[in-house]
Amino acid sequence: MADRREPLHLIKSRRDSALATLVSGVPYLAWLGIRFDRRGDELTAILPYDEKLIGNPLLPAIHGGVTAAFLEVTAIIELAWAGLWEEMESGRIVPDAAVDSAMPRLPKTIDFTVDYLRSGLPRDAYARARIVRSGRRYASVQVEAWQDNRARLLAQATGHFLMPQG
């Protein structure tokens, strides 16, 4: 069980550094500019607008592939984070980018289906993933992305993932 009297700043820095280590290990996330905001164990992915994300320069609109990538990244990080959280909070591991074995292995996408609900505006986008079912081998994840209004979804997706073994 977690220590109730553990100083708050230590708890926060442990969680924040675990998340930062997880996210900074993936070059593609840095290239797209994706960041994660954390509230307890809840993550919100943030995709800051950038000109290179545009798929239709006339409207302009964000590329559908970028929207799909953003949703898939959010699902994968959520799954890895959920696994990491258990290990970290129980004190079994201390995530460290310098130590390969101390970093969680990432789940692999089996399939991913994106529903495009609105055209992506040239502004920041946000996403949250929900693990619908996570077994030892397979996981099913649902993801939603939005821009200005949480209730007006940009896109939603469902994906199946192969969980890392061992």
Partner: peptide
């Protein structure tokens, strides 16, 4: 290099494949 999704294997992220597929389908 900057499109890699899993640094252990050097494999590009699935999102990159999505962007290529989406563009090609369009």
């Amino acid at each position: 290099e900057h499109l890699v999704g899993d640094p252990r294997s050097g494999v590009v992220h699935g999102g990159v494949v999505s962007a290529l597929m989406d563009t090609c389908c369009g």
